[in-house]
């Protein structure tokens, strides 16, 4: 068990190292940092000084180690576009994205899970059929179309919610939050639904399939034969087996959720990491793109790792099998 855990952690670190190297190569080979960072009237001495400061006179491997070392100390390079530190830019945008992700997770949990259970336990009920029919829209509609439609209906026609921005935010010592004001909550609702549309559909379909399958299995029939209540059978016996694959599949979809967050933030002008990435792509701001890629890759792989390593906690059979 321990050697397996250590092995998986090392593997993840290795892939992260490869990703960092590719990201570093992007920064090192593309664009002209001197032309972008130096003012046009800069002297040759200024130029030499900047070359030395950025370490551009070093061999490639030394520059990569310097790049890695810099990241460890919180130095993520300078943006070509704004000439600010990339680390500070990301830190300023992070709260907005995390709050959006959190809000969409709430939507997924409070809409997707109950509907998924409903469709799994009562697959033939009229309401389940309606839910399944509507859920096709969540899979096939492109993410940005969902956003445009929601804006057309709820902010233009009905005027209930704003169509862009975060509303009023409160600064809590470096963390700006929109969740303490009414306008902030109003602003987060449409983007959260847009971002959650895919996850909600996904959870409904996964839970339904899993519950239908588990519902057929021996131990559920046995639980019924023992005279346990339907409620007990579904919620403490069937759900236990259905949740693990659902969580796994959802974690594997995290990459898509990150991509969709870029689209959602673009549609709603949500001032988070996704819009920062979009602006960087539009202006070919390679340093920001590179750090964003490393950041996204790290988040994606660490969450996958946590999910994988937590299986034995959720499923006792795995604990015995590997011990």
């Amino acid at each position: 068990m321990i050697s397996y855990t250590v092995g998986r952690i090392l593997q993840t670190l290795l892939v992260l190292l490869v990703i960092s190297f590719i990201a570093f190569l992007l920064v090192a080979t593309l664009g002209d940092p001197l032309g972008l960072l130096l003012p046009p009237e800069a002297s040759l001495a200024d130029r030499q000084e900047l070359i030395a400061r950025l370490g551009l006179d070093q061999p490639l491997l030394a520059r990569f180690l310097h790049f890695l070392g810099g990241m460890m100390q919180g130095d993520f390079g300078l943006s070509y576009r704004t000439q600010e530190g990339v680390g500070a830019m990301i830190a300023a945008r992070l709260p907005a994205t995390i709050e959006l992700a959190f809000a969409s997770l709430l939507v997924t949990l409070f809409v997707g899970v109950p509907l998924g259970i409903l469709c799994g336990v009562r697959p033939n009920a009229a309401i389940s059929r309606v839910v399944m029919l509507v859920s096709i829209a969540g899979i096939t509609l492109p993410n940005f179309v969902v956003g445009v439609l929601l804006i057309a209906i709820f902010s233009v026609q009905l005027g209930w919610f704003p169509s862009f921005g975060r509303g009023q935010t409160v600064d809590l010592g470096g963390w700006t939050t929109g969740l303490l004001t009414l306008s902030g909550w109003q602003a987060v609702i449409l983007p959260a639904i847009t971002l959650a549309a895919f996850q909600v559909t996904f959870v409904i379909r996964m839970l339904r399939t899993q519950l239908l399958e588990v519902g057929q299995s021996e131990h559920i029939r046995f639980a019924r034969a023992r005279g346990l209540s339907e409620r007990r059978v579904w919620f403490s016996y069937a759900m236990r087996n259905a949740l693990l694959p659902t969580i796994t599949m959802l974690a594997l979809q995290l990459g898509n959720v990150i991509a969709f967050s870029v689209v959602t933030e673009g549609v709603f002008a949500w001032p988070g990491l996704g819009s920062l990435f979009l602006q960087s792509v539009q202006s070919a701001d390679i340093p920001v793109i590179a750090i964003y890629l490393i950041f996204v890759g790290a988040v994606f792989m660490i969450i996958n790792l946590i999910v994988e390593l937590s299986y034995p906690l959720l499923d006792p059979r795995l604990r015995r099998g590997r011990a």
Binding site: V15, V18, I19, V262, V263, F277, D285, I289
Partner: peptide
């Protein structure tokens, strides 16, 4: 292994990055 690394990123995000690189 190259495929594995690429799979860490959704295709939509990669298309954006490749577009940015081409622009650069």
């Amino acid at each position: 292994r190259l495929a594995d690394v690429q799979l860490a990123y959704p295709a939509l995000l990669l298309a954006m990055v490749i577009d940015a690189i081409a622009t650069a």
